[in-house]
Simulated scan of single mutants.
Amino acid sequence: MQGLGSISIEVPAVNFADIVGHNLVKNRLQQTIKLLNNPTLIKHHKVSLPRGLLLYGPPSTGKTLLAKAFANEADFPFISVSGTDLLDHNFVKDAICPS
């Protein structure tokens, strides 16, 4: 795991099979992975690849676990940032364009 301020980057070991419930969300995230792994389909629909994924909802509902499973199954790093950090212009600037 490495970090930049409050940003942490990791390669999670959890997958969707480890998560009980959230079947609709898991299904939609798996569909997103299929799209990301098939760039010709994305180009066919004339949309650009997403640069990130944001899950929202009440605390303690499994968003972070779902995001880690998504990152693992999509073979992406998991990057965690607190919501309050995203409100800090300097933090966002440093995160996007580190010196």
Rank of each mutant, 00 (worst) to 15 (best):
P77C: 06
A17N: 13
L24G: 08
K63E: 05
I42Y: 00
L29T: 13
K43L: 03
S48W: 00
F76H: 15
K46I: 04
H44P: 01
T32N: 12
L87D: 11
N38E: 09
G62T: 06
T61N: 05
H45E: 00
S80C: 05
T40W: 00
F91P: 01
D94W: 01
N23I: 11
F91M: 08
L55G: 10
A69N: 02
K46C: 03
F91D: 01
T32M: 15
H44K: 11
G21A: 07
R28Y: 01
A71R: 09
N27D: 14
K93S: 09
A69S: 04
A69T: 03
I79M: 15
L35P: 01
L49Q: 12
T61D: 02
T32R: 09
I33G: 04
F78S: 02
D88H: 09
N37I: 01
P77D: 06
F16Q: 00
I33V: 12
N90Q: 14
A71F: 10
S80V: 01
H44I: 00
P50K: 06
K34G: 09
V25G: 02
V25R: 10
G21T: 07
R28H: 14
Q31I: 06
K63R: 14
I42W: 00
L54D: 02
P39A: 04
L54P: 02
P50I: 14
V20H: 12
G57M: 13
D85S: 15
I33E: 02
H89T: 12
I42H: 00
L36I: 14
T64A: 08
G21K: 03
N38T: 14
P77I: 11
V47C: 03
Y56H: 14
T64E: 09
K68P: 02
F76W: 15
L66R: 10
F76T: 03
D85H: 12
N23V: 13
P77T: 10
V47Q: 04
T61A: 09
A67S: 10
L24C: 02
Y56E: 13
P77N: 08
